[in-house]
Write a protein that binds this DNA or RNA. Structure first.
Length: 272
DNA sequence: CGGACAACCTGGCGGC
DNA sequence: TGCCGCCAGGTTGTCC
């Protein structure tokens, strides 16, 4: 589901509906959705707090409240959106958590697979204190990338999926970035030449930027908060294109398993 | 450090 | 139409 571009799109869509709102009652029907603190503490603590800012870190959505941070991770099938409180709630049978807002609307968390989690903490580090750099920040320079790659030996696809190495890259954009850099997904990190490292650094940035520009990819479950689909999937070079012709050379895109994940690549453009 | 794999869950799809 | 197995955008923990 949601990788950096999808999560960023959700943040941009819900931000204007949340900034300045004061939170009221909480409702939930799947206890495990609420990770921290226990549900009764969560409800008591969040009521009355207002939303000052909404931002993203890696694949986490962070709402800065008066005293705490409301953090949401969508995992595979989570959706976060604001709807009128009197909208037919049954229309979305997968809503497992919601918060009343002071304007008659509700922040709803819908998640068919129930992997997603919400947290209420004072410090984001309580949730995750080992996240790599944000690839779309100016601070993510080639030097930084080169430095983080130094000494690493695992295969490059596994490394790109590791959130402590670089934040926000998931299975889709890892494949897309490797294609753009013309690097075979089974190459090891220490086998990359200097020019390949530079190509990969820029490919990560361009693949993710394109995803954000197209408002995320709607392969299966992902929808923007307004319910419409993103368009990023229409621009993929390899993800979901097994057996289709490579957009660059016409060779047949292959799908294999790398690091336990379905992995798409062009055997001609990305030789081993 | 890292690879392999199971868990957590449910829905969609292809095949028979 | 029905049933079955397989696959899925993520992350974490365990075992080797």
């Amino acid at each position: 589901m949601p990788e950096l571009p999808e999560v960023e799109t959700v943040v941009r869509h819900i931000r204007p509906s949340l900034i300045g709102r004061t939170i009221g009652a909480m409702w939930y029907d799947w206890p495990r959705t609420i990770h921290t603190p226990p549900p009764s503490d969560f409800a008591a603590r969040i009521a009355g707090q207002s939303v000052a800012a909404v931002r993203r870190r890696a694949k986490y959505i962070i709402c800065e409240l008066t005293h705490d941070l409301l953090v949401v991770h969508l995992k595979m099938t989570g959706r976060l959106y604001v709807a009128d409180a009197d909208d037919d709630h049954a229309a979305d049978r997968w809503v497992h958590f919601r918060l009343d807002l002071d304007d008659g609307r509700q922040l709803r968390f819908s998640d068919s697979r129930k992997f997603g989690r919400v947290y209420l903490v004072t410090d984001f580090a309580q949730i995750n204190d080992n996240i790599g750099p944000e690839p779309l920040d100016d601070a993510f320079t080639l030097d930084v990338f080169r430095g983080r790659l130094a000494g690493r030996t695992r295969n490059i696809k596994a490394l790109l999926l590791d959130q402590s190495f670089v934040a926000g890259v998931g299975n889709i954009y890892a494949d897309e970035a490797l294609f753009r850099a013309a690097i075979h997904p089974e190459r090891t990190a220490d086998s990359l030449r200097a020019d390949e490292v530079a190509a990969l650094h820029s490919a990560i940035i361009t693949a993710l930027s394109a995803g954000v520009q197209h408002e995320g990819a709607s392969i299966n479950w992902y929808r923007k908060p307004d319910g419409t689909k993103g368009n990023s999937q229409d621009h993929f070079y390899v993800y979901g294109r097994a057996d289709a012709p490579c957009r660059t050379c016409g060779a047949t895109i292959r799908k294999i398993r790398v690091a336990g994940r379905g992995t798409h690549f062009c055997p001609v453009c990305q030789p081993l």
